[in-house]
Design a protein around this nucleic acid. Structure first.
Length: 283
DNA sequence: CCTACTGTTACGGC
DNA sequence: AGCCGTAACAGTAG
């Protein structure tokens, strides 16, 4: 359930189902998903605790308890979170079940088991989740071309890798970095230090534009979310490059190409997202 | 059978 | 120190 729009979708569907609910049973089937603290303390802190509200930060979800404790989650590649009726048959790879006080249960499911949970006690400093090193939210007013240039304009790393850097902007992953660069008409393999001022401006504008577009497209009802087992993506019909390698570009009909950048597959239009001649010569 | 995969971290080498 | 590339995590889908 990976990037910001999907995590935001989960938050919006689940939060109203959790607020004010007391956790009356904890069933941890796979202890390795708990990153912090030790298992007994993790369980004990959650048990009989009441959920106050939820928050999304980057690709993390936070569940705040009324006593100030906080459960943090990251879905990594294949995690999902869903509220189901009590004793509803769990999906395969369901690692945590929290039974609530209204005959419902929260299920955390993750086939690949890359997802992680952390429990921070009230006032405890966060040195473990990775949330503390996140950069700005895509919708933050401070996310300007000046901010991006200050953070990135000196770097030789590709712009694609820079957009994936959670310590600069939080929540962009492999799908949406490709979508952003496609609409910006910037080659994903261009070095950050070779971007022009105009290109930084375009990127600063498109990060919030593209991310809010996909948050909108991902809107889903509680019923549809439940029926899709918390894994349905509403936005996929709107992706213009990700998953479309070999298909015609929607701007110019050229064939979209795929290349590996920073170990991640990247789809782009070789016609619309040209590198400056000098850039391609250097690389 | 083989490859690829929405994410992040740890490691060795420079 | 910082940066880079790779492996690791582990299962499923095509």
């Amino acid at each position: 359930m990976p990037e910001l729009p999907e995590v935001e979708m989960v938050k919006r569907v689940i939060e109203p189902q959790l607020i004010g609910r007391k956790i009356i049973t904890i069933q941890l089937n796979q202890e390795s998903i708990v990153a912090y603290p030790e298992i007994p303390e993790f369980k004990q802190a959650l048990l009989n605790n009441t959920i106050a509200n939820m928050n999304r930060r980057g690709k993390f979800l936070e569940i705040y308890m009324e006593n100030g404790d906080k459960l943090a989650l990251h879905f990594r590649m294949t995690g999902s979170l869903i509220v189901v009726p009590k004793d509803f048959p769990a999906e395969k790879h369901t690692h945590l079940i929290m039974v609530l006080d209204n005959n419902t249960e929260v299920h955390f499911t993750d086939p690949r088991r890359f997802g992680r949970l952390w429990l921070l006690r009230k006032g405890e400093e966060d040195t473990c989740t990775g949330m503390y090193k996140l950069g700005l939210e895509p919708f933050d007013k401070n996310l300007t071309d000046a901010y991006l240039q200050e953070k990135l304009a000196h770097r030789k790393k590709t712009i694609k890798e820079c957009l994936l850097d959670q310590s600069v902007v939080a929540g962009i992953g492999n799908i949406y970095s490709d979508e952003i660069l496609y609409v910006a008409k910037i080659h994903p393999n261009k070095r950050a230090c070779d971007l022009t001022a105009a290109e930084w401006q375009v990127i600063a504008k498109l990060i919030p534009d593209v991310m809010s577009f996909f948050v909108e497209k991902n809107k889903i009802s509680r019923e549809d979310y439940f029926n899709g087992k918390g894994k349905e993506y509403r936005n996929t019909p709107y992706l213009r490059v990700y998953g479309h390698s070999g298909e015609p570009c929607s701007f110019c009909q050229s064939k979209l190409e795929k290349m590996v950048i920073g170990g991640r597959s990247s789809v782009y239009c070789p016609q619309c997202q040209k590198m400056a001649l000098l850039d391609s010569f250097i690389r």
